[in-house]
Simulated scan of single mutants.
Amino acid sequence: MADQEQEDRTEQPSEKRLREAREKGDVPRSRDLSGAMVVLAGVAALISTGHDAMEHVRSIYRLGLSYSRDALFAGNLPGRVWFGALHEALGIFTPIAAATLLAALAAPTLLGGLNFSAEALQPKFERLDPIAGLGKIFAMRGLVELGKSLLKLALIGIALIALIRNWQPEMMQTGRGSVGAGIAQSLGLLGRAGLIFGVMLGLIGGVDALWQRFDHNRRQRMTKQELRDEHKESEGSPEMKGRIRQVQIQMSRRRMMQELPKADVVVVNPTHFAVALQYDDGRMRAPKVIAKGVDVLAMQIRQVAGSHRIPLVEAPPLARALYATTDIGREVPASLYVAVAQVLAYVYQLKQAVAHGVTPPEPPRPEVDPDLMGPYRDN
Rank of each mutant, 00 (worst) to 15 (best):
2 A>V: 13
5 E>C: 07
7 E>A: 15
12 Q>K: 13
13 P>D: 08
19 R>C: 01
20 E>L: 09
22 R>A: 11
25 G>P: 01
30 S>M: 06
33 L>G: 02
38 V>Q: 01
39 V>F: 08
42 G>V: 00
48 S>N: 13
49 T>L: 02
49 T>N: 10
55 E>K: 14
65 L>Y: 05
66 S>I: 15
70 D>R: 03
70 D>Q: 13
73 F>A: 14
83 F>R: 12
85 A>N: 05
95 P>T: 05
95 P>Q: 05
98 A>K: 00
100 T>Y: 03
101 L>V: 08
110 L>N: 05
113 G>F: 04
120 A>D: 09
122 Q>M: 14
125 F>G: 08
126 E>M: 13
131 I>N: 03
134 L>H: 06
137 I>L: 14
138 F>M: 04
142 G>C: 05
143 L>W: 06
147 G>L: 09
148 K>H: 01
149 S>Q: 11
157 G>H: 09
158 I>F: 15
162 A>P: 02
162 A>R: 04
164 I>G: 10
167 W>C: 07
171 M>P: 00
174 T>S: 11
174 T>D: 07
175 G>C: 09
177 G>S: 13
177 G>W: 03
185 Q>A: 15
186 S>W: 09
188 G>W: 11
189 L>K: 06
196 I>S: 01
202 G>Y: 04
205 G>K: 02
206 G>D: 07
207 V>C: 04
207 V>F: 11
208 D>Q: 00
211 W>R: 01
218 R>F: 12
220 Q>D: 10
221 R>L: 09
227 L>F: 09
232 K>N: 11
232 K>P: 06
234 S>T: 14
241 K>R: 15
249 I>K: 15
253 R>Q: 02
257 M>N: 01
259 E>C: 04
265 V>Q: 08
266 V>P: 01
267 V>N: 02
269 N>Q: 05
279 Y>F: 13
280 D>M: 07
281 D>I: 15
283 R>G: 10
285 R>H: 13
293 G>C: 04
294 V>T: 01
294 V>H: 01
299 M>Y: 08
303 Q>V: 09
308 H>K: 13
309 R>H: 11
310 I>L: 06
310 I>T: 03
314 E>K: 11
315 A>D: 04
320 R>P: 03
325 T>D: 04
325 T>S: 10
327 D>I: 12
327 D>V: 08
330 R>H: 13
330 R>T: 05
337 Y>C: 07
342 Q>M: 05
342 Q>W: 08
353 A>V: 10
359 T>G: 02
361 P>K: 03
362 E>V: 14
